[in-house]
Write a protein that binds this DNA or RNA. Structure first.
Lengths: 196, 196
DNA sequence: TGCCATTATGAATTTAAATTCATTGAATTG
DNA sequence: CAATTCAATGAATTTAAATTCATAATGGCA
């Protein structure tokens, strides 16, 4: 009895992982249920014993992503720039070392902009993307002179979009040479007093 | 007679623009022929007098994108960093001022990674994305000390991915505060001699 | 004006993928 | 070891979207 439940859980996870890989690589709409079933090695019909629809399977993944993001979003930091360095390094190391983390990250990014995802979910993703918090920290950095001047929200976006797109690219082209996290922090850093 | 041909060309272009907007915003697969027809204000059937299939319409757009990219890719420049500043500024100003340019840019980026696009087309896109050329210029910059050290290809990717994702974000969220082109050049710039 | 050729329509057909279901096989329990 | 429940299959059904087609309206022109 215990065995059966455990087995079921395991199978469920296999489906989630297979779908995640395909969704991220081909897109949700271009992924057929039969693709997922084949990848897991199970019949099409059985897949519907685990998830009542393709949509439900997709939302289950988004839910996992939301949980994961919640637990991540709190980095303690001393100085403003250290926060961004730590964030970038955390995301990049997870991206390279944990394919699943990278894929979830990409899935969330894609969902955030997709008109097919309910607004409520998209809002949650946007909310705990931490852009607003980043903008706050940038303001602190501008006050103490460590961050360059400019619209804090625009700076936050520039930084996050760059990090996100790098992670996304890596998921799609795992052979690419990987950029260094600190390069992206230079987007924010105040280089005023430099001459070159 | 002349009138008719001109009219036909105009209609064709209307379809292309409508499809471009939808493809970029919702994705190709999630865009229905009926969405496009409705947006243009034409019956579904008539659309097939202009393009023999949804795929053909999509490829026509990619062709336009390839042409456009060819004409852009040559920026004259003095110093390595000036090349990147000019490129970023050109792309950003086009993005903000010419919605069509921005959308084509995003369409090409999406196609580049899509497994549904024939490899031959994807290779062309990758080819004239100019990443290889960028890496060359970065090497020059490293030689003269203006660009930081690190894998030139990784630096080129970091820069282009950041620029691309910013343009893409703007297409999807036109209200976002727009980052400054020069911020992204700081990804490449050698800041070694700075103390802050 | 009456005649083609072209533009236009939208209902009918085709196609492809999602979902259901009748049936079989395997494991668990009394 | 039968009985029962759950896992598993894949063919049949449903659904949604792409594509075709019979038919009507329109515009240029002899």
């Amino acid at each position: 009895m215990k065995t059966r439940n455990a087995q079921k859980e395991k199978r469920r996870r296999e489906i989630l992982y297979a779908a995640l890989d395909l969704f991220v690589r081909k897109g949700v709409s271009d992924t057929k249920i039969s693709d997922i079933a084949e990848k897991v090695g199970m019949s099409i019909g059985l897949l519907f014993n685990y998830f009542e629809s393709k949509e439900a399977l997709y939302y289950a993944l988004l839910q996992i992503g939301l949980e994961a993001a919640k637990s991540v979003s709190e980095f303690p930091y001393e100085k403003p720039l250290a926060f961004f360095t730590a964030s970038a390094e955390y995301i990049f190391s997870a991206t390279v070392q944990e394919p699943v983390v990278a894929r979830i990250f990409v899935l969330m990014k894609q969902a955030q902009y997709s008109e097919n995802v309910p607004e409520a979910i998209r809002a949650q993703i946007t909310h705990n993307s931490g852009i607003a918090k980043a903008a706050e920290i940038i303001k602190q950095g501008q006050a103490d002179g460590s961050v360059k001047s400019g619209d804090p929200l625009a700076l936050a976006l520039a930084f996050w979009l760059s990090i996100q797109s790098t992670a996304e690219a890596f998921v799609l082209m795992p052979d690419m040479p990987f950029p260094k996290a600190e390069w992206f922090v230079d987007i924010l850093k105040n280089h005023k007093e430099c001459s070159i």
